[in-house]
Structures are given as structure tokens and as C-alpha cells.
Design a protein around this nucleic acid. Structure first.
Length: 818
RNA sequence: GCCGGAAUGGCGGAACGGCAGACGCGGAGCACUCAAAAUGCUUUGUUCGAAAGGACGUGUGGGUUCAAAUCCCACUUUCGGCACCA
């Protein structure tokens, strides 16, 4: 700290040391005070993963979340602004493996470090509501909810090909595969056939999509469109094709039933059960070819599969399907360009009107039959051809009529499809919530009875946590072997743990009673507080976490535990903090340490810099902003308070009108700026008021004038959103008891804001030529006269002929010349 | 390829269709000082001009309007997201 520690100087370190213990005592942000009648407001920051100390990204997120929380507190709300830790998950486990420690120790040490950093960072958290997801008291309710889902058929087990990360040695949800790579370690993801637990998100696909409309305007458009995209609903038809030598027809999904007459072959996903079944009766040559193709496909990963310039591959499997509209025999092929887990895993191929089918047809010399007259017609909107009695119909009508025709002979119907898949929640790792199911040879899957929850994780001691493809919990024999709750026979616990996204899907409700041993959350408190009024966090969770939390909310609503359908009413996505144009990282050598910044500039200066740098949703490049400048401003504001000499409680109405006007203009502008997330502009307004106050103090108004106190107090209250230490100290300097955070934002006095004159501008052909003060009630005629009386204006008009004069009294005259 | 953002001084960024560049960073100058730091004040889009005062100016090209950073169309660049989803 550069400042000398004298009582006349702004000493950041001394101020920080002074106020922390006092706040600990006063608990200004306790949201659970008995008899509190203030209206409730729930402001939530996404909780951190305890992977070390807080970094610059946390500092931004929590600074911005705190602006909002503190704003509502100043507005007289009882604000619940809780914090906790999302503390299960792979990093803890990997760190533990690397260092040979228990993941628990690593996790809880980090939590303590982050907790103390957050306290110093002076977030307005309610420390009585802390939750930690790896505590049994938390995850027991994960298990309870899992069983509620299970009861309703929303949690189920199935065998299917899953995303497998060969490096993490665990399965991944679809959402955790990014560009074919493991989200966590960037290894190429492969497919593996496993029996795994799923949540039936797809049952909620329509609601998850449709309810996004209600969030319009309150959630960033970007997030809404990402969610819509992810759910990916499409409308089309299911069409059944009879297959020679098979009792059951094959059903395909298509968005283009209008092109059915153009189908010339059928393709099934090579890795689907259907393909394997169809090929069984084929001759040995075909079978061998198929097997080797299937083998090759399984070995390849998504990266190879998805390469866009890759040639189509496939094998003919020796069977034929019958096109239900015209009886044509269509050869059935197997290929990897058809996905096993979308639609029905089989498609009708229309090479004339589908690029991928076209490539395949060219590669394997399959016939192409156009069904739209105009080959230039990319949408295929024009009249049908080669389509029997449907010839001449346009796209939409043709589609409808063909589906009608199919429906009449039980060979098709309208259908919709989703890109969204069910959520795979089992993980073959140690550090997570154990799945509360017992497997019994006679009874099958048996839920752990509610009174035996939580199923606590066994100690990691003696367990090999290294990834090996099966859960480390399998080796905890004392833990695994239990009596079947149903028949009492020897049985085994499920050894998988839950995806940590389960933990974060409902944590916002757990804050209502984080210590309850009798319920996940209290139903009445959920009515009072939830849903979250304002959620703040990074856009990295735009799909995963938000989608899952929305899903849980809808299920809980169906169960009758909550009375709302969407968890987060309003969402703010803050940008990232970068350094020299790229994300900070040790390997890039551009890591800025938060602790260094706090040490060099102080907590308030760092927080203020985060708010002032630009719009909150934009990224901040730390190289472009000036925490030193913020510190300078804070000192300037503090000194201004020091120079106020009139006593607290003085009658402001006797103060200087000009400065009062500045103060009340600020008070008028400030709130809407905060509510619209224009924190940077709000900070600028505080700076303007400080500048006006400084001028008044140094000029002939002076520190004894009541208006100086009024301005200084407004500055302190405004700054309390951004700079808790400085503002609290200013408040004390101004002679008040501690508690600027709850002092309340004064209402702007409208009578002070009434102007009786205004600066009018005169344009000639749209260009500014003159401006002057005019009375607010000037008439159009008077204003017009004043304009033409201006020398600048007449010179600008010169010899030109006047075409038109626009008068917008009292502000503007625009003279258009010919 | 498809779907969204974004583009304003040396820099971060402001601007209900009506004074472009608020506020800050950086720069220059002045005051205080033996000096420096700190602080305060002045100034700072480019350009012509001694000045008065002009010209130009919000990625590019068009359009709507008395008036466009703002609305419309096309384009360029750039950043995200999705991507063999039938």
C-alpha cells in the first residue's frame, strides 16, 4: 500500500481492517431476521467450484452480483444473497490422485480459503445459509430427489452406446462433449456400450422449449437461442416401410414427407441394434463386410466421424424395404452418417433433395429421382413431379396429403423430434453422490428406503481412485455388500455416483434451509422466496446447468413441491476477464493474480474496476483498465466527505440549489441504470457527482453548506454498491453510525429538477450552427425567430433558398435549404 | 454451411431518431514544492486557420427522414453458438 497511514489520508489497508470485524458483528445482510417485514428479493450468484483460491473471474462475477444484491438492499428489500460450494467432481479427485490425498481434504481446504477470500472481498453474502454439496446433509437430498424421480419413471437405467472419455475413464453427458472432445480434458470422445442411469429430460422437451418464450427480455437472447438450438425440435412425419422377410416394418423420421416419392434407398445407423438384426439373415460375405465396417466405426471417434470433408462410407446389407406410397423396392444400406440415437436410427434417402443422401448416392451409384420440378428451387417449395397423384402440389400441401395418405393405411403419421437426449447421470468415479439403489438378484433394482438415507460415501482410504472404467466404490466391499431392503438376501449397492450437475440443479432451493435434516427445502419458504429474482453467472453454463435446473424445476412443480415453472426469473451473464486479448492462464504467461491486485489496489478499487470497465456482459481485458485510476477516484470521493463540515441531520433544503440539483439528478438517474445493468454508466454518474461536489467544496459554496453534505451522503450511498469499505468509512467520516449499506437510496426531489430554461440548438441542413439558452415554455414562433436572428445561422444559410423549417420547441430548429 | 452478437478518439467505453465522443485511462500544460511524489486546475477526435470560423468524422456502399452511431437493404471484418439431427 502506497498511502501513508495518517488519519487525514485515505488508507485502504486500515479501512479494510477496521470494517470487516464490525460487519461480522452487525450482519447487515442476514436475510433471516425475525419479524422482518421488508419485501423479499432473491439474488443468486452461481456458486463456485472450490478448485483453489478465488481468481479474477470470480472477482468479476461476485462484484457484479453484489452490485445487484446491495442495490435491492438499499431499495428497502430483504435480500437473500447466499453462497455455497459446488464441491463434488473430478478436479478434486484428480488432484487427490496426483497428490495421493483424500479428495475431501483438498476440497474442504480450498473451501476455507475461498470463504476467507470472499469475506475479505466483502460480498454481501448471508453467511448463515452456506451450503456445500459434498456434505452428506446436502447430498442426502440429491438421493431423495433421485428416488422421487425414480418413483415417477424419470430416473431409469438402460444399455446404450454412450460417450466415453478414454482419459477421464468415465462416461460423459451429451452436453459435456464439445466438438467431439471431452469438455474437461480435451481428449477425443469415443462410444462405448454401457448400462447407465438416465434422467428423462426428453419428457420435458416441449415445456423446456416453449417456456423459453416467457423468459424473453429477462434472459440474454444468446442464452435463449442456445437453449432452443440445443433442444432442437423439428416437425415432420414418421413413415413405416415394410421390409421383405421381416414382420415389423422399419419406421423412419423425416422432415420432408413431401419428397417420399424421391426415396431411392434406405440407410440405417451402422451402430444401431436394428442394423445388426437386419444383417443377421444376410449371406456371409455381406455379414463379414458389415462386421468389419461396424468395427471400424466403433473405433473411430467423433472427431473423425464429424470431419466435414470426409467421404461417405457404408455397406449394403442385402435387404429391401418397400416404399409405402408407390411399392418401390428400396435397398437398405448401413452407414455411419446416420445417427443411432436421433429419430429412429434409420432414414429414407432422397438423394435428389438432400445433400448427404446425394453424396452417398454418387459414391455408391444409387438412383436419383427428383420430385420437385425446378432444380434451382433450393427449398423444394415448387410443384411435385414423379409423385403419382400428388404431382403439381406445393411442398407443404404435398407433405400434408402424403401423410394423410399414409395415415389412412397405417403407414405413417405426423411426428416431431428433438435433438435433446436423455441426461446420462451415472459416473464411474468416487467423489460424487452415491446412487441410492441396491441391486438384488431376486428383487432387481431396489431403492434405498428413505429412512436409510443418506447413503454416505465410504472413506477414500484404501480405495484406488485411479480411473479404470469402473467405479472405485466397487472396491469398498464393506460398503457395497448389503442386505436387500426388500427380501433381506445379500445384495450390492450401485457403485456409480451422480453427475455433479445434479447437485447444482436444485441448490437454489436448498439455500432456504441448508441445514434441514427433515426436508430438501421448506415448501412455504419456497413460496415466499423462490423463484430466484436475479441470477448472475458466466455464459459457460448457458446450456448445461441452466437446462438441468429448469428441468428439475418443472419436475418439482409436477410433484407439487413448488408453485413456479422457471427457476431463474432474470439472468445476467457477465463476460470474462482476460489479459492482453486472451483468457488468463499460467501456460500463456498472462495470469493476473487476484490476491496481487487486491494487495496493490485494495478490494474496493478492484471491485469498482470490474463494474466500471464496460457493460457487464462484455469481456474485460485487464490490460485495458485501470484499477489504479479506480483507487484514485475512491480516495477523491473519500476526501470530499472529509471536507464536509456541517453536522449530520442538517436541513438540506437550505443548501445551494445548483449542487442540490446535481445531487438529485444523480439520484434520479442512478436506479434505472443499475436495474438495466448499466453499472459502468452508474459509476460514471457517481464520478460526475463527486466532481461537482469537489468544485463546490473548493469554490464559494464550501463544506459548511448543507448541499455539500447532501451530495457527499448520496456519493457514499451510491458507492456502497461498488466499494463497500470506502463508502462505509465515508459514512463514518460524515458522522453516521455504521451501516451505509442499508442507509437507503433517497428519492430524487422532482421539484429541484424542474428546469426553467434549456439549451436550444439550431441546425442548418442537419448541421449544428448555433445554440442558446431559451425559456422552457418558449413558443414555436419565438424559437423560430431566435433561430433566424442568429448570425451563425444566417451565414450558414447564405444565398440558399429555404425549403423547410422544422421547429421542435423548446429544443431544436432545423432549417433545410434547397 | 446454419443461427446469433459486435464494429464509435491513442485506449476502455457514453449517447429516448435531434449538440457524437458522457465518465475514465493515457498525453500535454499550469499551480503547490528547493525538487519530486501526491493533490488541484486547464486542455486533449482529425484537419485547415494567427484568430474568428470552417471542412471531415461512428467498418463499407446504398436507402428512409427536415435530421441517422441509432431505422431499412446489401456487403466486409470479427467474436460466439450449433453443425452428417434426416
Amino acid at each position: 500500500m502506497k498511502q501513508l497511514s495518517t488519519e487525514h489520508e485515505y488508507d485502504v489497508q486500515a479501512i479494510q481492517d477496521k470494517w470487516l470485524p464490525i460487519w461480522d458483528e452487525l450482519k447487515p445482510f442476514d436475510s433471516n431476521k425475525p419479524g422482518d417485514t421488508r419485501p423479499k428479493k432473491y439474488v443468486l450468484d452461481m456458486f463456485p467450484y472450490p478448485s483453489g483460491d478465488l481468481h479474477m473471474g470470480h472477482a468479476e462475477a461476485y462484484a457484479l452480483g453484489d452490485v445487484i444484491a446491495r442495490y435491492w438492499a438499499q431499495k428497502g428489500f430483504n435480500v437473500m444473497h447466499p453462497i455455497g460450494w459446488d464441491s463434488f467432481g473430478l478436479p478434486a479427485e484428480n488432484a487427490a490422485i496426483k497428490r495421493g490425498l483424500d479428495p475431501k481434504g483438498w476440497t474442504y481446504d480450498n473451501i476455507e480459503q475461498q470463504r476467507s477470500s470472499m469475506r475479505r472481498y466483502a460480498c454481501s453474502f448471508d453467511w448463515d445459509r452456506v451450503l456445500v454439496t459434498s456434505d452428506p446433509i446436502y447430498y442426502r437430498w440429491n438421493q431423495w430427489l433421485f428416488l422421487e424421480f425414480y418413483k415417477r419413471g424419470l430416473a431409469y437405467r438402460k444399455n446404450s452406446p454412450v460417450n466415453w472419455c478414454p482419459s477421464c475413464q468415465t462416461v460423459l453427458a451429451n452436453e459435456q462433449v464439445v466438438q467431439g472432445l471431452c469438455e474437461r480434458c480435451d481428449s477425443a470422445v469415443t462410444k462405448k456400450s454401457l448400462t447407465q442411469w438416465y434422467f428423462k429430460v426428453t419428457d420435458y422437451a416441449d415445456r423446456l422449449l416453449d417456456d423459453l418464450d416467457g423468459l424473453e427480455g429477462n434472459w440474454p437472447n444468446k442464452v435463449l437461442s442456445m437453449q432452443r438450438n440445443w433442444i432442437g425440435r423439428s416437425y415432420g412425419a414418421e413413415v413405416s416401410f415394410e421390409v421383405e422377410g421381416r414382420d415389423e416394418p422399419i419406421t423412419v423420421y423425416t422432415t420432408r414427407p413431401d419428397t417420399l416419392f424421391g426415396a431411392t434407398f434406405m440407410v440405417v445407423a451402422v451402430d444401431s441394434a436394428l442394423a445388426s438384426e437386419l444383417v443377421e439373415t444376410a449371406d456371409s460375405t455381406i455379414r463379414a463386410e458389415f462386421d468389419s465396417y461396424l468395427e471400424k466405426t466403433k473405433k473411430s471417434n467423433d472427431i473423425e466421424r464429424l470431419a466435414t470433408d470426409r467421404e461417405k462410407t457404408g455397406v449394403f446389407i442385402g435387404r429391401y424395404a418397400i416404399n409405402p406410397v408407390n411399392g418401390e423396392k428400396l435397398p437398405i444400406w448401413a452407414s455411419d452418417y446416420v445417427l443411432a440415437d436421433y429419430g429412429t436410427g434409420a432414414i429414407m434417402a432422397v438423394p435428389a433433395h438432400d445433400e448427404r443422401d446425394a453424396e452417398f448416392a454418387v459414391k455408391f451409384s444409387l438412383p436419383v429421382i427428383p420430385v420437385v420440378a425446378d432444380p434451382e428451387d433450393e427449398n423444394g417449395d415448387g410443384p411435385r413431379i414423379n409423385s403419382g397423384s400428388f404431382d403439381g402440389l406445393l411442398r407443404e400441401e404435398a407433405g400434408d396429403k402424403i401423410v394423410e395418405f399414409l395415415a389412412a393405411k397405417q403407414a405413417g403419421k405426423k411426428a416431431k423430434n428433438f435433438r435433446l437426449r436423455d441426461w446420462l447421470i451415472s459416473r464411474q468415479r468416487y467423489w460424487g453422490t452415491p446412487i441410492p439403489i441396491i441391486h438384488c438378484d431376486t428383487c432387481g433394482e431396489v431403492p434405498v428406503p428413505a429412512d436409510q438415507l443418506p447413503v454416505e460415501l465410504p472413506s477414500a482410504e484404501g480405495l484406488d481412485l485411479k480411473p479404470k472404467g469402473t467405479s472405485p466404490l466397487g472396491a469398498a466391499t464393506d460398503w457395497v455388500n448389503v442386505a436387500c431392503p426388500s427380501c433381506g438376501a445379500p445384495a450390492k449397492r450401485d457403485t456409480d455416483t451422480m453427475d455433479t450437475f445434479v447437485d447444482s440443479s436444485w441448490y437454489f432451493l436448498r439455500y432456504l434451509s441448508p441445514k434441514s435434516e427433515t426436508e430438501a427445502f421448506p415448501i412455504q419458504a419456497a413460496k415466499d422466496w423462490a423463484p430466484v429474482d436475479q441470477y448472475v453467472g458466466g455464459v459457460t453454463h448457458a446450456i448445461l446447468h441452466l437446462l438441468y435446473a429448469r428441468f428439475f424445476t418443472k419436475v418439482l412443480n409436477d410433484i407439487g413441491m413448488i408453485d413456479f415453472n422457471e427457476p431463474f426469473t432474470r439472468l445476467l451473464n457477465q463476460g470474462m476477464v482476460q489479459m492482453n486479448g486472451s483468457a488468463m492462464s499460467k501456460s500463456r504467461g498472462n495470469l493476473v493474480r487476484l490476491s496481487d491486485q487486491l494487495g496493490d489496489h485494495g478490494v474496493d478499487a478492484v471491485r469498482l474496476t470490474m463494474a466500471f470497465a464496460g457493460p457487464p456482459e462484455e469481456d474485460i481485458d485487464w490490460a485495458d483498465v485501470s484499477p489504479a485510476g479506480s483507487a484514485k477516484f475512491l480516495a477523491r470521493a473519500w476526501r470530499a466527505a472529509k471536507d464536509v463540515t456541517c453536522a449530520p441531520g442538517v436541513d438540506f433544503s437550505k443548501g445551494n440549489t445548483e449542487l442540490r440539483k446535481a445531487t438529485h439528478t444523480f439520484l434520479r438517474d442512478f436506479s434505472p441504470l443499475i436495474e438495466n445493468f448499466k453499472f459502468n454508466v452508474a459509476v460514471a454518474k457517481v464520478m460526475e457527482l463527486v466532481n461537482a461536489l469537489r468544485k463546490a467544496l473548493d469554490g464559494n459554496i464550501g463544506g459548511a453548506d448543507p448541499s455539500a453534505r447532501e451530495a457527499a451522503e448520496a456519493v457514499a450511498i451510491g458507492l456502497s454498491l461498488f466499494a463497500p469499505y470506502t463508502s462505509e468509512d465515508m459514512w463514518a467520516v460524515l458522522g453516521h453510525q455504521p451501516g451505509v449499506a442499508l442507509a437507503g437510496l433517497p428519492e430524487a426531489d422532482e421539484t429541484l429538477l424542474v428546469e426553467n430554461s434549456i439549451t436550444a440548438i439550431v441546425q442548418v441542413d442537419g448541421k449544428l450552427r448555433d445554440k442558446f439558452e431559451v425559456p422552457i415554455d418558449i413558443t414555436a414562433e419565438q424559437l423560430r425567430e431566435r433561430a433566424f436572428a442568429s448570425e451563425n445561422v444566417t451565414r450558414a444559410i447564405g444565398d440558399s433558398e429555404i425549403a423547410n423549417v422544422i421547429v421542435r420547441e423548446p429544443k431544436l430548429v432545423n432549417i433545410a435549404t434547397k
